[in-house]
Each structure stands twice: as C-alpha cells, then as structure tokens.
Amino acid sequence: MPNIRKLDPTTSPMHHLGAELRRYREAAGLTQDQLGGKVYCTGSLIGQYETARKIPTRRFTMQLDDVLNTGGALLRLLDMALCFQVPLQAKEIDDLEAEAAQAYFFEPSVVHGLLQTKGYAQEVLGVLHKDELSAKLANRLDRQLILERQNPALIWVILGEAALHQVVGGREIMRSQLAHLLAFRDHRAVHIQVLPFTAGAHVGLTGAFTLFRFRNGPDLAFSEGYEAGHLTANPEDITARTLRYAHLQAAALSIQDSADLIARVMEERYGTQS
C-alpha cells in the first residue's frame, strides 16, 4: 500500500521536498512503485522520501529530477533543506538509531539510553513524568534490542566521567549500571570510552550530540534539546561535528583504560552490592 502520510509543506524544508516529489510523481502519472522501478528502488522507499521519513542522497535526487523532468527543482530543494535544522521528537530519533549503520554518541553527564539498565533508566525517565513512566521505560528498553541484532550497527559512545559519579537512584543502581557498562568490553559492535575529568577544557563542553551514518542516505547530526532535539544534514555541520567527535576520542581514555576506570569507580565509590 502506498505511503500517503499527509504533509504540511510549511512545517520544514524536508517536508516541502517530500510534498514536491509527490506532486511531480503524480503529475507524471506514476505510482510510487512505478517511479521506484525507473530509479531502481522500491516504491516503499519512494514513499519514505515523500513523507520525509528519509532523506535522499544528492545523486539519487538527481536521478529523480531526470526521470520526472523537473529541471533540477528537487535537487535545489534538497540543497536548501540540508541547510536547516529540523526538530525531531523522541520516536523519530529511535527510528534513526534503528536504521543507522554507524552511530557516534557523546554524553557528558549521563549514561546513554542504549546502555542504561532498567533501574537507571527508570530513575532518569521518572524525574518529571512519572505518569508516563511505564510507557517511556518500555520504549527505552525496546530501543536496546538493536544491540542484539545479528548484524548490529557500530555504536561508539563517549561518556564524561561525571556520568560515573552522578548518583542516579542510589549506590546499588549505580553499581549495577557500571557493571552493565563493563559487560560491553567484549561486544563486537559497542565501544565505550570515558572522557576523564583530567581532560580539562574540551570541545564537548557545549553539550551532548550524536552522529548517524547510513548505508543509503546522507550523514546526520543530532543535538539534544529539552523538549525536542534538532537534526541537520548540512555537510558543513556534519564535517564540524565529525572533527569535534575526533577530538573527543583523542582526549578520552582508551577503551581498555576506560573499562579500568569504570571498574575502579564501581568498587571505590559504590562498594559491594548488598
């Protein structure tokens, strides 16, 4: 069945691009499947582009322009859309995590959601919205299933040392959480580094951010916000965030030294679990 999600072109440039792609396709008298056949993809993928659920590459957009005889209109819209930051809700970020081939996370003061234990996640999510806690907790734990896939994405996480010391939910929950982090030492796809207090001033002082890389789509960068985060595919922003992440990796402890620090904090700060 074709994807006919209703879009408001005034919501964002990416929605405008999707709406225009649909308009050009319908003007050409093509179904999503028929257009997909002409550009060597599925109709479902065309539907995801039309509903702004995915961002097409420039090369693919040029193919669409050629087939639909738009005079390059779609590529011009894509270039404009990539320059804007798009607000995203939590569910949309979950979808990006699930689809990414690689994801790079920086969290200066809290353990990232994909690595949280149930007890830790419950404390974090219940700070303001206890009435919605059950649903939010179930969703967070479901997100972590991507780590158990047969071919999981590459996940790289840099945690600020503060995340190890900030007591969330008490000593037992923290000990369990740090032990859970140590359990990833031999994971084939998850790599954890700790940015120590001794690193001093660093390029991550402005806050948490994420980089997503996809097999069939442009790289994306995501920055956290209180109510909604913001996503960008602007190549200049991606380059700047990639450089920032490389600096953080260089300033952080090695994976082995990070595990040693986590184990030391677990024993010295949280002691033996009762």
Rank of each mutant, 00 (worst) to 15 (best):
264 R>I: 06
63 Q>C: 06
193 Q>H: 05
46 I>D: 12
263 A>S: 14
120 Y>E: 03
56 P>E: 10
16 H>Q: 11
67 V>G: 09
214 F>D: 04
138 A>E: 10
263 A>F: 08
51 T>P: 00
196 P>R: 02
135 A>Y: 00
139 N>I: 01
259 A>N: 14
142 D>A: 13
76 R>S: 14
222 F>R: 02
167 V>G: 06
138 A>R: 06
194 V>K: 04
187 H>Q: 03
3 N>Y: 07
43 G>P: 00
21 L>Q: 11
163 A>G: 07
30 L>C: 09
28 A>M: 08
182 L>Q: 14
269 R>T: 10
64 L>E: 03
272 T>Q: 15
141 L>Y: 04
182 L>A: 13
167 V>H: 12
127 V>Y: 05
233 A>I: 10
30 L>F: 08
225 G>Q: 00
74 L>Y: 08
154 L>T: 12
182 L>E: 13
116 Q>H: 04
36 G>Q: 09
191 H>L: 06
119 G>N: 10
97 E>C: 00
25 R>M: 10
205 L>G: 12
32 Q>K: 11
9 P>G: 09
273 Q>S: 14
11 T>A: 14
112 H>L: 04
23 R>N: 04
104 Y>W: 07
152 P>Y: 01
52 A>H: 03
170 G>R: 08
185 R>T: 12
51 T>I: 03
250 A>Q: 15
203 V>P: 12
45 L>F: 02
188 R>K: 14
145 L>V: 03
272 T>Y: 07
257 D>L: 04
11 T>S: 14
264 R>D: 13
92 E>T: 02
221 A>M: 11
91 K>N: 12
53 R>F: 00
162 A>H: 10
144 Q>V: 09
42 T>A: 10
53 R>M: 05
57 T>Q: 11
147 L>C: 07
101 A>G: 08
183 A>C: 07
164 L>A: 10
24 Y>W: 08
254 S>G: 15
180 H>P: 01
184 F>K: 14
240 A>Q: 09
237 D>L: 11
257 D>V: 07
20 E>T: 15
150 Q>N: 06
198 T>A: 15
243 L>T: 10
201 A>L: 09
259 A>H: 15
247 H>F: 05
245 Y>I: 06
12 S>R: 01
